[in-house]
């Protein structure tokens, strides 16, 4: 079904997609003329396929559950923020805070993601085919981030737990983020995500693994004078 944002209001389109009849079999949607609208396809909670043709604004696909969303364009701040499950595939670039605080699902970005990609991620898998900006995976708690390009300053700052894999260069690591040894289970993880993202020409052992040094976990008595 074709949904045109020039003919229908954003709220109307979101309402349609958020309240699909459980018994309905037509679960293929194409949205045209998004023109940078915010919160498009936020709060979808059923299995369906949605293709958005054009650039969208903030929080596209936020809180997604189960839906498979493709954006044929660029996305604004906070794409797939707080996603629980399903897939969001961005064919262009993503602005800041892509996949922020998301608990699950897969976010694929074909282009670059700017700053704070995966900030406070809590279980989402993020695959960026290009590069990520500064402070990506800031305070990340769980999940996996695969970056096929480079990472900006302060990668993984104040990291709790999450696996970060970067193929290119890392401008600098944030506090308590260190390079870690790559084990078979990590290579398998990368391999699986590359496959899901249909990336064929890159091998898992091209990546380096980064994670938490776990030194910020507990109060350290030696630092008492700092408080």
């Amino acid at each position: 079904m074709k949904l045109d944002l020039k003919k229908k209001k954003l709220r109307e389109i979101n309402n349609t997609l958020q309240n699909l009849d459980n018994k309905k079999n037509d679960r293929d949607f194409v949205i045209i003329n998004p023109e940078g609208s915010h919160a498009l396809c936020a709060g979808l909670n059923q299995e369906m396929k949605v293709l958005i043709k054009g650039h969208v604004g903030y929080y596209c696909g936020g809180m997604n559950q189960k839906a498979y969303l493709t954006i044929d364009g660029n996305v604004g701040t906070g794409v797939a923020e707080n996603m629980m499950s399903g897939t969001v595939h961005v064919k262009g670039n993503a602005s800041q805070s892509a996949g922020a605080t998301a608990h699950g699902g897969l976010l694929i970005i074909d282009g670059d993601a700017s700053s704070r990609c995966g900030i406070s991620m809590k279980g989402i898998d993020i695959v960026v085919k290009g590069s990520v900006g500064h402070m990506s995976a800031f305070m990340a708690q769980s999940g996996t981030m695969v970056v096929c390009g480079d990472a900006g300053e302060a990668l993984g700052d104040s990291l709790y737990e999450a696996d970060i894999f970067v193929k290119g260069s890392v401008k600098s690591l944030g506090a308590d983020c260190i390079e870690k040894k790559m084990e078979k289970k990590h290579l398998d993880k990368i391999s699986n995500l590359l496959k899901k993202s249909e990336i064929k020409n890159i091998k898992p052992d091209n990546f380096k693994r980064y994670g938490s040094a776990r030194k910020l976990y507990n109060f350290n008595i030696d630092n008492v004078s700092s408080y």
Partner: peptide, 18 residues
């Protein structure tokens, strides 16, 4: 925001970056 530019001529073929 991009929505301020969505009406510009030929914007969908523009080079768009932050």
């Amino acid at each position: 925001e991009f929505q301020a530019m969505a009406h510009l001529p030929d914007v969908n073929n523009a080079k768009i970056f932050e």
